[in-house]
Design a protein around this nucleic acid. Structure first.
Length: 501
RNA sequence: GCCCCGUUGGUCUAGCGGUUAUGACGCCGCCCUCUCAAGGCGGAGAUCGCCGGUUCGAAUCCGGUACGGGGUACCA
């Protein structure tokens, strides 16, 4: 299968605003976006909010917010507009009504009056007989008299699309040729009895009207593809769209723990949660890309940490793996750590500001002192973190008011026992002996401490510095000690050692 | 029931008829080292779901089968 479209690519992402944006959705958006960008095409962002009972504005806002955070920009769509708007289906109802009417007028769709009970009964019978259980086509060819009779009974009809009687074969962009037999693709409802259009109509209508050339979506929609192809062929007859049918590619699921699809309820699936935890959009996206796709090896060397730009350059839909992938938070976090290490110190510092602000350690906007302290402190933790929020915990001791400084009790017990206090006392003396006139710097601090604790007391380094670390930073785990002491400053360092003794 | 999709170490993944089956995350060990990381080195872990077939030769091609997933809605 080749991956060289002949006409300009127009791809789209068209979620329904129900609940929290989840990672599977982001993966679908990413692949569609990367596909469009790779081919220099257009990316459309449309919202499918045709079901008023499930859709809501808050969810819509979240969707827009998260797409912007991820950096998946769109050329046409909600918020930005475009030639084929509006891009919210709730604002396009007249269009769907018009298309449905045209389909009816052309004899490509029909009114069906079956009641829910009747349908269920026939469906059960078909199953029992080992037959496919879709609509049996009973009202396909009702005469006007029969229709009038049903209406006289007070029945409100749905509109069903009349599937041409033939087999349906298409070449899926990720799975290859797929065929559905005619008997398994029955007439489907496109407009509810109350006049509301359904996804089955709105989605292909918009794709046709917006000139979508490539439809990349979740594999849950694979079996509805024949219906959509049939609809496109009908559109060609009634003049909706340009008469062509897009190509389809069905992306595998992103699964959660166990073996089930990551659901919207699952906290691991909540995209905003990742932002709050301090994931970088490029880190999350990189990991998501790895779920079903990989950068081609260059001269036999595989690479799994890459930028969005790298992905755009290399993204071939034919390389997408058709099988579902389990989301692994640990690996996602590890990849994110790699991306953090790829950031310059200045970039990292900038991205860290919001985390420090929400922890109440830095004001909004940061003061000059806070900014310079951050600038000096960030290099200390840059390669020690996988998530932005981890920096807050590691550096809290530098930013916190003295009154709020606390020592972890478990660590105090382990390190500041009698022996440890003795070491801390020696450290306090050694540091206090550094002349006021001498620079309070990492080398001087290290020199003083080593001379006193290692050479003087004859301690192993880990035994020497542990108690000092706990007294000064509040934890057995901290950024490098001497640098930390330098940044803390003379006064605060002395105060903390004194307080610990 | 019927239809469709999928199946390579715990997880993700490379592989497109001939490899000691690739790499990553995780795990274990060692080195580095003031803690933790990062980094370096090494290791354990896969009879490529199973059975047949094609072929000199199959993870790769074909057929079946099992298991998992999806669809079968007046949800999307």
């Amino acid at each position: 299968m080749t991956d060289a479209p002949t006409k300009p690519v127009v791809a789209r992402f068209c979620p329904s605003p129900t609940g929290n944006p989840h990672v599977g959705m982001a993966r679908t958006a990413l692949f569609s976006w990367a596909f469009a960008r790779h081919h220099g095409g257009t990316f459309v962002f449309r919202i499918e909010d045709t079901d008023a009972s499930r859709d809501n504005q808050e969810s819509y806002d979240l969707l827009v917010d998260v797409m912007r955070w991820l950096g998946l920009d769109w050329d046409q769509g909600v918020e930005v507009g475009g030639p084929d708007g509006p891009y919210r289906q709730s604002e396009r109802m007249d269009i769907y009504a018009d298309v449905a009417q045209k389909l009816l007028d052309a004899g490509l769709a029909y009114k069906a009056y079956d009641s829910a009970e009747e349908l269920e009964e026939r469906r059960d019978a078909a199953r029992a007989a080992g037959l496919p259980s879709g609509y049996d086509g009973l009202h396909r060819d009702l005469t006007p008299e029969q229709q009038a009779a049903y209406e006289a009974e007070g029945r409100q009809p749905v509109i069903r699309f009349k599937m041409p009687l033939k087999d349906w074969t298409f070449d899926d962009l990720v799975r290859g040729e797929i065929t559905f037999g005619s008997e398994n693709v029955q007439d489907f409802v496109i407009v509810r009895a109350n006049g509301q259009p359904l996804y089955t109509l709105t989605n292909p209508t918009d794709d046709a009207l917006m000139g979508i050339t490539h439809v990349l979506r979740g594999e849950d929609l694979l079996s509805s593809t024949p219906r959509q192809i049939a609809l496109y062929e009908a559109f060609a007859q009634i003049g909706v769209g340009d008469g062509t049918t897009p190509q389809f590619g069905h992306l595998p699921y992103v699964m959660g723990a166990g073996n089930k699809k990551l659901s919207k309820r699952d906290p691991e699936s909540n995209l905003l949660g990742y932002r709050d935890q301090g994931f970088l959009p490029e880190g999350l996206l990189n990991y998501l890309a790895l779920l079903g796709w990989s950068l081609p090896a260059v001269e036999g060397v595989e690479r799994d940490v890459f930028s969005l730009a790298d992905m755009v350059e290399a993204f071939e839909i034919s390389r997408v793996n058709p099988n579902p992938a389990r989301f692994d938070l640990q690996k996602c976090t590890a990849i994110n750590g790699d991306h953090i290490r790829l950031l310059s110190g200045a970039e990292l510092q900038e991205r860290l500001v919001p985390s420090f602000q929400s922890a109440g350690l830095v004001s909004d906007p940061p003061t000059a002192d806070e900014t310079s302290l951050l600038a000096a402190a960030v290099p200390l933790v840059h390669e020690r973190m996988a998530l932005l929020n981890e920096a807050v915990d590691m550096l809290r001791f530098l930013f916190v008011d003295e009154a709020d400084f606390v020592i972890d009790e478990a660590d105090r017990a382990k390190q500041l026992d009698d022996k440890g206090l003795e070491v801390a006392r020696a450290a306090r003396e050694a540091l206090g002996a550094i002349p006021e006139t001498a620079e309070w710097s990492t080398p001087t601090i290290e020199g003083a401490l080593r001379a006193s604790l290692i050479d003087g007391l004859g301690l192993k380094p880990r035994l020497a510095f542990g108690p000092v670390r706990v007294a000064v930073t509040g934890s057995r785990i901290s950024p490098p000690l001497f640098e930390s002491i330098e940044l803390l400053g003379r006064r605060r360092t002395f105060a903390r050692l004194d307080a610990a003794l």
